[in-house]
Amino acid sequence: MVHLQNISYAYDRSRPVLSDVNLAIKPGHIYGLLGENGAGKSTLLKSLAGLVFPQYGDISVMGYQPAARTPEFLSQVFVIPEEFTLPPVRLSRYLDTYTPFYRDFDRVLFDQLLADFDIGSDVHLEQLSYCQKKKVLIAFGLATKTRLLLMDEPTNGLDIPSKSQFRKIMATALSEDRCFIISTHQVRDLDNLIDELIILGNQRVVLAASIEQICQSFAFKSAAAMTDDMLYAEQTLTGVHAILPNTQAEETRIDIELFFKAALVKGSQITHVLTQATRHHEQHI
């Protein structure tokens, strides 16, 4: 669905953001795009939507060149940016104005999502709080039924119950021909939501793998003290939380935040273990 080949982008010569990025993204999955501040998450999302043009490399999204920004391509992509404004009109007027641009817009789904988010049906958008406006935009984005949905920090500004609603809604909105890419630094908000993980660091893709592969390759455990076989560990009040190679084929629950930190600190080791484990698993299948 999405192919990035040798993508490099810099805002100016002194500020390279992405360097030689290669990535393949498949439909039917929710991708979590993680990285530290300034790692290039937003830039990567923007390049997929044709909002920035990489200096080097090729991007293909559903067979289109995003840089051309054709209406046919744009009608199949929806971006929910971190910063946004909604026009000062009633919700009904907003829908009348914008929905005709998206031929597959599902009004029933939109109304359902709005009800799930506890937003009134014909509110005046100017009178909504930031959190409420964000929910309206998320509901609209999901209801457009575009094949690619890009979300930059969608849980920023959402309260805790809303984050829970968001996770539930996202999981039910996904279909086999759609792909959601969620960029966030609030790693815990992606718990039980994403099934694919992309980690950016040092202008590159440090890791791109499915949650299933990660859980097959690594064991996430708590222990009293650090041991030599731990790939990465963090001290806690009760002991250590650690990542170990999953040599015993144990089923453990992924700790995305811990894994993210481990990937940034010990990226090559983590990638090596992942590759070895994946190869081993494929041989046994």
Binding site: P71, F78, V79, F101
Partner: peptide, 10 residues
């Protein structure tokens, strides 16, 4: 805040 929506409008 406004540019992304304008440029991604089909």
């Amino acid at each position: 805040a406004t540019g992304i929506q304008e440029l991604t409008l089909p």
